[in-house]
């Protein structure tokens, strides 16, 4: 699976301060660490970029490209920041993201055409995030058709089903999983991408990793192409490189509804099985899901 490093994210206090102070060294340290860890792309998340959008985007892209020879996934809601950053990307960039919102169709998608980028298109519309598989399908068919009309090929579209936290809405975890499974049948040639760590948003920090990793295995089995993820999580990288095969097999069995006797397993495998059950919606989530 293609991994997009998520760690240069404006929500992080350290990143936010580094951007404010134009502290190149901190940003470059994060970029190098993620490149070393094995990221295929680096996500630069500027959020809404209200202050000096163009200056910030240009500075950030230049700062990162000075030390990392990786393509960039430029992540901002602000079209001015997006354009300023895309102009400077040396490798073919990923515009992250466009959606079915009228404003996004009007202002973001044309930038993908103008700068010949690949583009993330989410299932979000002006009505919000569609609540189930069918409405996600309806939304993405419409939005992708619009993008095709602008001249963007399916092969350059990375569809984002929108991952919601398991602690907030357990049912949505399964809906997104199912959507990924049927996506390429619906839209041949499109790729898929998720904001993986969203699944564990709201979960106590020490427990987030296993949720992210388990969900990655589940999504990959359903055909996921790429994930914006915490590439500094060594176990996640190991899994992506073919490791932890025993755990993977067990997660697949839980997905297939096969009986698994978790109590007889070693601690690590047991925890992956419990996590898979929670993500499949077979067991009610609580922060203590590994303890019961």
């Amino acid at each position: 699976m293609i991994l997009i490093g998520e760690n240069i994210h404006i929500i992080s206090k350290a990143v936010s301060e580094a951007v404010r102070d134009r502290d190149s060294a901190s940003i470059q340290a994060l970029a190098k660490a993620q490149a070393r860890a094995g990221a295929d792309y680096l996500d630069l998340n500027l959020g809404p970029a209200r202050k000096e959008p163009e200056e910030v985007a240009s500075w950030l892209v230049d700062t990162v490209q000075a030390v990392a020879d990786l393509p960039i996934s430029l992540d901002t809601m602000n079209p001015l920041a997006m354009e300023a950053g895309l102009k400077l990307c040396r490798k073919r960039a990923l515009l992250n993201s466009a959606s079915g919102k009228a404003e996004s169709k009007e202002k973001m998608m044309p930038l993908a055409v103008k700068y010949s980028t690949q583009v993330v298109i989410s299932v979000i519309t002006d009505q919000g995030c569609p609540p189930d598989v069918d409405s996600r399908v309806e939304s993405i068919m419409e939005t992708v058709a619009y993008a095709n009309g602008l001249g963007i090929d399916n092969e350059d579209i990375w569809v984002d089903p929108i991952i919601l936290p398991v602690s907030a809405d357990q049912k949505q975890v399964r809906e997104a999983l199912e959507f990924v499974r049927i996506l390429t049948d619906l839209l041949p040639g499109v790729k898929s991408v998720v904001g993986l760590s969203n699944v564990s948003n709201g979960t106590p920090a020490p427990l987030r990793g296993i949720l992210n990793r388990t969900y990655m295995v589940m999504l990959e089995r359903n055909g996921l192409y790429s994930a914006i993820a915490d590439v500094l999580d060594q176990e996640l990288i190991d899994i992506n490189r073919g490791g932890l095969n025993d755990a993977k097999v067990l997660i697949h069995r839980v997905m297939d509804g096969e009986p698994v006797d978790a109590d007889t397993l070693p601690e690590k495998e047991k925890n992956y099985v419990k996590t898979a059950r929670v993500l499949m919606g077979d067991a009610l989530y609580s922060h203590a899901w590994l303890e019961s």
Partner: peptide, 14 residues
């Protein structure tokens, strides 16, 4: 909150 409810139950059941 159903999730917090379950969490507290799990802790008490120990």
């Amino acid at each position: 909150d159903i999730n917090l409810e379950k969490e507290l139950s799990v802790k008490l059941l120990k």
